[in-house]
Design a protein around this nucleic acid. Structure first.
Lengths: 143, 143
DNA sequence: CAAAAAATATGACAAAAATCATATTTAAGA
DNA sequence: TCTTAAATATGATTTTTGTCATATTTTTTG
């Protein structure tokens, strides 16, 4: 479904949503370990998320990564698209170019509606909502 | 969702379901072209499908690939599992080991039900059904 | 039985994804 | 202003996936 990189990006962003703030930034090491992702790898991903405005960062001592208040409103789909690109998520099960409901591929009817729903969910759900979901005990950590 | 190899395997199997029979076997070249897959690559995939009993083959002149009558009852999921392995399809959105409804990961509720439905569809649908679906014009070729 | 037509086995090569390493830049604080 | 702690930039390496090439085996048929 998602690439590893996207999964890591989502985990890291959500981890920041739960554990960091502008006043309590997190250093790479303190993100990599709890979410179980190789440090050097997550570093690269965090850099790219930061460049794309999904997360914030400052350098130097007392620096680190965090979410600014508007970044809590990032939709999960925004992260997916920032990392994997849009095509991946919209592509047909058989990767046919012109598969759609008028011109359905042979597997279309087995998954189309459900994929639509999942995409809508990803498009509507924000990091803040997931954070609250976790904090209220409805889903579990660790990541 | 699926790997390329799995998509190619499904396309090739379905192509055989539509165009071949024990009396009208198809040679690699006549499969590769219409489904738009590199010939040398599909050859390898067909070999492995044949070894796993998803499709049939005979060597020599007049040889080729085809489906035996019971192979029309192959479920799409059988092909997926034969190629990609079971984990891929059952894995959680974030690839957490122990994500399930009692211990849901943070994205679980965004996709679980829908993934279940898709999996059930793949588990129930046979090549024959897809073939009839195509032949009755409800989904389109080429693959 | 020989020739030809097919799959099969094997492995080399290429591209993409994931991972690791390190030198550079920035900012804080003594 | 110097040292230090942090991100950033860059790129090398490894692993996985996808692709290509070819020699071998099997089967049919003349």
């Amino acid at each position: 479904m998602f690439s590893n990189t996207t999964k890591y990006a989502i985990k890291a962003s959500l981890y920041l949503a739960i554990h960091s703030s502008k006043e309590a930034k997190l250093v790479i090491k303190d993100i990599a370990e709890p979410i179980n992702v190789p440090q050097a790898y997550i570093a690269k991903i965090l850099q790219s998320l930061s460049k794309k405005g999904i997360i914030s960062s400052t350098r130097g001592p007392k620096g680190g990564f965090y979410l600014s208040s508007n970044q809590f409103q990032t939709k999960i789909m925004d992260i997916v698209e920032a990392v994997d690109g849009e095509e991946r998520i919209n592509s047909c099960l058989l990767s046919l170019e012109k598969c759609n409901s008028e011109n359905p591929c042979s597997l279309h009817h087995l998954a189309y509606k459900e994929k639509q729903i999942i995409n809508t969910n990803l498009r509507l759900t924000t990091l803040e909502e997931l954070r609250n979901h976790v904090l209220s005990g409805k889903s579990v950590l660790p990541l």
